[in-house]
Design a protein around this nucleic acid. Structure first.
Lengths: 154, 154
DNA sequence: TGGGATCATCTGGGATATCATGGGATATAA
DNA sequence: TTATATCCCATGATATCCCAGATGATCCCA
C-alpha cells in the first residue's frame, strides 16, 4: 500500500492546473484509475483526496448498508455526489475544479498534505494556521495513540 | 469497476434530450446494453439510474428473497416494472421519458448525481437543497463509518 | 570535498481534441 | 398524412495534450 506523506506547496496556474507532488503520483501509479479522487471536506475548508481503490472500498461499504436507507443516502450525497475524478496529465498535473478550489479558498497556490491513505489540499496560509492550532492542542493534552497490530499478529 | 462520481448539470432541450456526462458514459461502455436503466425513486422526487449489470445483480438478489413475499412483490413492482432502458444516441444523449421527468420535476435542466455504483437524476434546484441538508446532517453528527476490509485482510 | 554534468520536477503557453447543445433531415408508427 | 422519435451535422466553449524553459536536486568524477 502506498502512503501519502509530508507536505508540498505548488503553484496553481491561470487554468487551474497544479502539479501533484511526485511522491503522491507514485502512490497512485498502478491503480485502475491513474489519478486522484477529491471532494470537499464537510468539517473544514479543505479538499479531501485519495486514490481510486479507496473509493471502490467505500462503495462496497455503502452497498453493505440497507439500500435506500437514510444513512446510505447521506453518505452517497456527501461523498460520491461531491467527489471529482481528477486525471493526472502527462506532466503530472491535475485541474482543480472551481467548486473545490472555492471551498478551500485556493487561488494561486495549493498545499498537498499527506495523511497516510489520504491527503488534503489546502490554501497554504490556512493550512499553516490549522497546523499550528493542531500542534498546540496535541501538546496540551500530551496526545498519544496506539499502533494497529502488525499483519499476522493476533 | 467503474464508479459514478461527482455531479454534472446539463440542459434538457425541447425534445427532452439531455447529454449524459462523458465520465458516466465511460462507465457504461463495455456493458451488454450500451445505455442506462432508469426508474422513479420511491423515497424522493428523483430518478434512480444505473448500468445494466447492476439490474441483473439486483434481479438475482430479489430472487434470493422468499418467493411471493411482500418484500419481493414490492421491489419487483416498484423497480422492475417501472424501469426504462434508455439507449445513448450517437452524440451521448438520452431522452428522458415524460413520466420520469415529471416525477423528478425536471424541465429545462437535469443534475446527474453520482452515487458509486448508481446515480440519480434531479431537478438541479431540488438537488441543491437535498445536498445541503445531507451535508448539514453529516457534519452535525460528525459522520464517519467503517471501510470494508481490504482484500486479503481478515 | 568541490565542481560540473545529468536528470527529474515544476511551470507556462499554444495547438488540438472532446464535449455539450441546437437545429434540421430522415425514418418509423398510428 | 400527421406526429413522434431517431439520426446526422455544425458550432462554440472548454478541457486536454504537447512542447519548451526554468529551477533545483542528485550523481559522478576529479
Amino acid at each position: 500500500m502506498a502512503l501519502f506523506l509530508s507536505t508540498f506547496i505548488n503553484k496553481v496556474d491561470r487554468k487551474g492546473r497544479v502539479s501533484v507532488p511526485a511522491p503522491f503520483r507514485a502512490a497512485v501509479r498502478g491503480q485502475s484509475f491513474k489519478g486522484i479522487v477529491a471532494f470537499r471536506s464537510y468539517r473544514e475548508a479543505t479538499i479531501e483526496a485519495c486514490a481510486m481503490d479507496r473509493m471502490e472500498r467505500l462503495s462496497q461499504s455503502v452497498d453493505a448498508l440497507d439500500q435506500f436507507s437514510d444513512e446510505q443516502d447521506e453518505l452517497a450525497s456527501t461523498i460520491f455526489a461531491d467527489a471529482h475524478q481528477l486525471p493526472i496529465d502527462g506532466d503530472g498535473r491535475i485541474v482543480l475544479p472551481a467548486l473545490l478550489a472555492a471551498h478551500a479558498g485556493i487561488t494561486t497556490a495549493a498545499a498537498f498534505v499527506g495523511r497516510g491513505e489520504t491527503f488534503q489540499i489546502w490554501n497554504p496560509e490556512a493550512f499553516e494556521r490549522h497546523q499550528a492550532e493542531a500542534r498546540a492542542r496535541a501538546g496540551r493534552r500530551n496526545a498519544t495513540f496506539r499502533l494497529a497490530p502488525r499483519d499476522g499478529d493476533k
